[in-house]
Simulated scan of single mutants.
Amino acid sequence: MTVDTDKTTGPADTPPAGPEAIKAIPVRHYGRYVSAVLAIAILGGVVYAFSQGKINWGAIPDYFFNDRILSGVGKTLLLTVLSMVIGILGGIMLAVMRLSKNPVTSAIAWFYIWFFRGTPVLVQLIVWFNLGLVFEYINLGPFYKDEWSDFMTPFLTALLGLGLNEAAYMAEICRAGLLAVDEGQTEAAHALGMSHSKTLRRIVIPQAMRVIVPPTGNEVINMLKTTSLVSVVQYSELLRVAQDIGQTSGAPAEMLFLAAAWYLLLTSIFSVGQYYLERYYARGATRQLAPTPLQKIRANLLSLGREKGGLA
């Protein structure tokens, strides 16, 4: 009986052993832990300090939906919208004038922007409010004539002061957006026989909106907060109403906190609107739009459901 010595003792088809899996050890960022602890400690200290004060926190929800407070909120929103309309329309006109080849219109636009950006908006409001000391009557010829005090109401003072000042800032924003559009777009439109105004409406402005919208959204939010300055011209917006209620109710600090809460609520709503507006105008610039907050929540819920299903 012979033995085949050519056969191996182990299995012939066993694959070679692969490399061992790398055990990745995450890097510990101790600085993050320290900063988190410090932030929590500071927040706790601020909360403790406010808790020791003689603040009637119950007055805030009691007056939050007060009729006078809601009226002040409505006037604040109205003033914000109308001032931004004046600012946007005036800014577009000033930007076009600034970019014009006509030296007169360009110089006028430059002087307007220089003056209104160089003086504080609070000073402008006070100047508009006190022009009655200089002009007893306003005379526009056959169109309108009246006493200045009857013409320049607190609302008109606030509207002119905020709207004209905002136009100077919007002019620079619009000018930056128009300059961001490649000149070849304008040259191609002119080669097709389009007029200058039609080129602006159909070609330049739609593309410039991607640059104009984000800072304009910030200006709207800033305008909402700037309306608090018009309390100095006797206009009954949110802050002035809250101050009046605070003086009569004996809770001045609480009413200021209430006004701050309303400003936070309104700016948060405006921020959400700004996000969706930016997302709308980014459609032609990015291949994939950023998910909306609702889409993020839905995706997180679906991922949690898949993990639970996998564990089951």
Rank of each mutant, 00 (worst) to 15 (best):
S271A: 12
Q243A: 06
V220I: 15
N56K: 11
S231C: 03
Y281E: 08
S83Q: 06
D13W: 02
P26C: 07
I86T: 09
V96N: 03
Y63M: 10
W114L: 14
L179P: 05
T119W: 01
M1E: 06
R32L: 13
V27C: 01
G45M: 03
N130T: 09
S149P: 01
P103M: 08
K198C: 03
P154N: 05
R28Q: 07
R175A: 00
T80V: 02
A176I: 08
H196C: 04
P154Q: 08
A285R: 09
P252R: 07
I40R: 10
N130Q: 14
V272M: 09
I138P: 09
N56I: 07
I22F: 00
A39I: 12
A24E: 10
L179S: 08
L131Y: 02
G246C: 10
G246W: 05
W262Q: 07
K145Y: 11
K296F: 01
R240D: 08
L162C: 00
Y112H: 15
G310R: 11
L89T: 11
R68Q: 11
E254K: 01
G31K: 15
R32N: 14
G163E: 07
G177V: 03
A39K: 07
I25C: 00
L264K: 09
T2G: 11
M152P: 04
R240I: 02
V134G: 04
T5C: 03
V204A: 07
P252V: 06
G90P: 06
L79R: 11
K198M: 10
C174R: 00
L302N: 13
P15K: 14
A282D: 15
L224T: 15
A168T: 10
A167V: 02
V34D: 04
Y263I: 09
L162P: 03
I221M: 15
L311M: 11
Q124P: 05
Y48N: 13
I69F: 01
V81D: 12
G18W: 04
L265G: 07
G309R: 14
S236I: 00
I40K: 10
G74D: 10
G91I: 08
N102S: 08
D244T: 09
D6F: 06
G310P: 03
P291E: 06
V123S: 11
R201Q: 14
D244V: 08
I55W: 00
Y48L: 06
T227R: 06
L164R: 11
V46N: 09
M255L: 10
A95E: 07
Q185A: 02
V34M: 07
A41T: 10
G193M: 02
P252W: 03
P142R: 01
A109E: 12
Y169M: 08
K296H: 04
M152K: 02
L159D: 05
F115E: 15
L264W: 13
Q185L: 02
A59T: 13
N66W: 02
G44F: 01
Q124S: 05
Q288D: 12
A261E: 09
K308A: 09
E136R: 12
A21R: 08
Y235W: 13
A290H: 04
G74C: 08
F129E: 14
L294C: 02
K101V: 00
Y276A: 14
Y33R: 13
L277P: 13
F257D: 07
A24R: 12
F155I: 05
G53P: 00
A253Y: 10
V213N: 06
L200I: 13
S71M: 04
E166D: 10
I173K: 00
T227G: 08
Y144V: 03
A168M: 05
I138C: 04
E237M: 11
A188E: 01
F135P: 15
T226S: 13
